[in-house]
């Protein structure tokens, strides 16, 4: 069974986000980039299938420039067998989905794992678009997945107040979230082995146009400073609330 794991290359969750230029570009200085945590759940689940004795090959794929290669190498260190970088700028979900679709066509993958969203842009659009382009089954927000034969899988997906159990035919696109597996830490031998695993660079498809351009990023409004009002000064409390239009 061939599994493709789509890997987003995102700033570490502890990064202090800053913008440069006209506020339309992330300041990448001093920023550590990592595998998108939700994509990593998918990678880990794919490795889990292998550990359960299934004959799987795992390809990690990312859309981006050479800067994403260390992230793909980490996916290889964790356990992917090979990696592919589609050399395109990934600033548009439609473009990314279309590029992945063009790569996947004709390659006989049975499962494609993505994250439920990337933690930088939080778009949550690529997996749905990809499934639509491919005409495959799509299960989003998966928290559990078991194969039930060569042709189908049972998955759990989170819904309000509980979870839904679904059976889906393969091939399938699965967007993953916490619960589907546990993250894995690359071990030293895995890191060394990763350096010898193939990492192919694929040119982007010519016909895919970038349909989105960013005008500006901005920060959420800063929290206002706390105002302390003396317990016996109700008049001031009323004034403050009135001045803010709250009463």
């Amino acid at each position: 069974m061939k599994i493709l794991v789509c890997i987003s290359h995102v700033p570490d969750t502890t990064t202090k986000i800053k913008f440069e230029g006209n506020g339309d570009t992330l300041d990448k200085s001093g920023v550590t980039f990592v595998i998108n945590p939700y994509c990593e759940y998918g990678l880990s689940r794919a490795i889990g299938f292998r550990e359960e004795g299934k004959n799987v090959s795992i390809t990690a794929l990312s859309v981006g420039g050479p800067e994403v290669e260390p992230t793909l190498r980490k996916a290889l260190a964790i356990g992917a067998d090979d990696a592919v970088r589609i050399s395109a700028h990934p600033n548009d979900s439609a473009l990314v989905a279309r590029q992945i679709y063009n790569y996947v066509e004709g390659k006989e993958f049975s499962v494609i794992f993505t994250g439920k969203e990337s933690i930088d842009f939080n778009g949550s659009m690529v997996p749905g678009m990809l499934a639509e382009y491919l005409g495959w089954s799509f299960v989003s927000f998966a928290t559990h997945m078991e194969m039930t034969g060569e042709e189908s899988a049972v998955l759990h997906r989170e819904v309000d107040g509980g979870y839904e159990v679904v059976e889906a035919r393969l091939p399938i696109v699965v967007s993953c979230q916490k619960g589907i597996s546990e993250w894995r830490i690359p071990n030293m031998r895995g890191i060394m082995a990763a350096r010898k695993k193939p990492l192919a660079v694929v040119s982007p498809s010519e016909e895919v146009a970038d349909t989105l351009s960013t005008i500006k990023f901005d920060y959420p409004p800063a929290k206002e400073a706390c105002t302390y009002i003396e317990p016996d000064n109700a008049a001031r409390l009323v004034d403050e609330l009135v001045s803010k239009g709250l009463i």
Binding site: T32, P70, R73, K74, A77, N187, M192, A194, R195
Partner: peptide
């Protein structure tokens, strides 16, 4: 590259 990956790991 190997050094950096191992430090991160």
């Amino acid at each position: 590259d190997a050094i950096n990956m191992m430090i991160d790991a």
